[in-house]
Amino acid sequence: MTVDSAFALQGLVKTFDGKVAVDGVDLAVPAGSFFGLLGPNGAGKTTTLSMAVGLLRPDAGRALVLGHDVWHDPVRAKSLIGVMPDGVRLFDRLDGTELLTYQGLLRGMAPEVIDARVTELLDVLALTDAGRTLVVDYSAGMKKKIALACALLHAPRLLVLDEPFEAVDPVSGATIRDILTRYVAGGGTVIFSSHVLEVVERLCSHVAIMAAGRIRTVGTLDEVRGQRTLEEAFVEVVGGRTATGAELSWL
């Protein structure tokens, strides 16, 4: 294990009902990198990230956070990462302030620190206006933002975000991008999954492309895309049909 990997996945495998979802994923995320995990729907991105943060038990393989094994030393490892899972509900019968406070207390943070950070986070993410509305009544974009705030609250060294830009409007998206860029500039490491290639191209220093449960390409952004655009590189790596124009003529 080299020290400059903030996050290392080694040989992760997961099979659901005989169907292989993740087929041996190895990944080393350098400390201080802004890492984009790309892949088409069903490539196994969410499954991989879930196994990496302790939400889903892998059939084989290891996940190391700054040298701590997520499955053997969970307490230490989990305290170092902030996670924003996708397709998972929040404790949405709380309002925004309550949810963040709850998250902070679960993380064992000091009350004064929680008070200060909760107010500031809600302010920066423009969620203060929501006031005492329950999170269940938030819009999709607001839910993403409050979930991000939950992941950021304890100032982790590593952020694992599953689809952070999905269903987010441009203004909120810009806010999230700003926060994440500043976080990386301050020495943090971010890995996030996405299929919004423009965002990845704009933000990421490193990129990995996943398809059918395996990592197909990995490297710095320039290594992966070479002389092409990222989109061309993506389509070439993943493979897929291109429209000929003849089908769907009845539309």
């Binding site: 709380l94 406070t101 207390l105 005492r132 509305t133 329950l134």
Partner: peptide
């Protein structure tokens, strides 16, 4: 469940929670 709001309470977030 309809736009439900939590009851107003004063104090810092932790004290309120």
């Amino acid at each position: 469940g309809g736009a439900v709001r939590t009851r107003a309470a004063s104090g810092t977030p932790v004290a309120r929670f």
